[in-house]
Simulated assay, not measured.
Amino acid sequence: MNLGAAERMSQLEHIVNTLNYAADLKRRVAQDSAAEILEMAERIAGAFRTGKKLLICGNGGSASDSQHLATELTIRYRSSVNRPAMPAIALTADTSALTAGANDLGYDNVFARLTEAYGNPGDVLLGISTSGNSESVIRAINYAKSHEMQTLAFLGGNGGKMKDLADVSIIVPHTGAADRTQECHIAIGHIIIELIEDLLGYAPAPKPKA
């Protein structure tokens, strides 16, 4: 497909504006939430150090992020770092449990039920919601808090209902479609994994090159 000159310029402008906006969002997160990112890493590393585990949940793209991050903790993040597996469970990965829970208990209860199954006092639950209003994630956080688990949240927009529920929350200040928020969430998750590896003595967090 051949674009006309004006349309091509418009598309190129869209690409540049989108990438610049995404970069600006990450800069805002760096300015506003660096301390929270470090605290999350410290809490998770501390849990791992004492034999506890991390549970992660979210819906849609956030479900994919839950599985992405859990896999990098259990299997490997950087191929150059040979370290032990770390105990992280994505509550989004078992389709039989999710569909049975939705059918028998109502979908809003599926993550709380799985948190009941796998969570213990001292474990950490990370809930991911681009709106901050996902009822299934809210109920999981409420269950975790009432059973002496630590609670963390990756959020978007104004943080929604979840911003004041979790022990530590990071809010990506983007409204509208979830895409840009999800891009920040996965970047934040990767940084947290790097910090955990550093805090546990497996490898120093890499220093980005200018």
Rank of each mutant, 00 (worst) to 15 (best):
M1G: 14
M1R: 07
M1F: 10
N2M: 12
G4R: 05
G4H: 09
A5D: 14
A6Y: 01
A6E: 15
R8F: 12
M9C: 12
S10E: 13
S10C: 02
E13D: 14
E13P: 01
H14I: 13
I15P: 09
V16S: 11
N20K: 15
Y21K: 15
A22V: 12
K26Y: 12
A30L: 15
S33I: 08
E36H: 13
E36T: 11
L38M: 14
E39I: 09
E39R: 14
E39T: 15
A41R: 05
R43W: 11
G46I: 05
A47D: 01
T50R: 14
T50P: 05
L55G: 01
C57Y: 05
N59W: 05
N59Y: 07
N59A: 11
G60C: 07
A63K: 04
A63T: 06
S64P: 09
D65C: 02
D65P: 08
D65H: 13
S66D: 04
H68M: 09
E72V: 10
T74F: 11
T74D: 03
R76C: 08
R78A: 10
S80L: 10
R83G: 05
M86C: 03
P87K: 01
A88P: 05
L91N: 09
A93I: 13
D94W: 00
D94H: 08
T99F: 01
T99A: 05
A100W: 03
A100R: 04
A102F: 07
D104V: 08
D104F: 07
L105P: 01
L105V: 00
V110Y: 00
F111Q: 06
A112S: 06
L114T: 07
T115L: 01
T115C: 12
E116Y: 07
A117E: 04
Y118P: 02
G119C: 06
G127F: 00
I128G: 09
G132T: 00
S134C: 10
V137F: 03
V137E: 00
I138D: 00
I141V: 12
Y143I: 03
Y143S: 01
A144W: 03
K145I: 05
K145C: 00
S146W: 04
H147V: 01
E148A: 15
E148H: 13
A153H: 02
F154H: 07
F154C: 03
G156M: 09
G157H: 12
G159I: 09
G159W: 04
G159N: 04
G160R: 02
K163C: 06
D164H: 13
A166P: 01
V168N: 04
V168S: 03
S169I: 08
I170R: 07
I171Y: 05
I171R: 03
V172Y: 10
D179A: 14
E183V: 11
C184Y: 12
H185K: 10
I186P: 06
I188C: 10
H190A: 04
I191V: 15
I192C: 06
E194C: 09
E194Y: 10
L199F: 13
Y202V: 04
A210G: 11
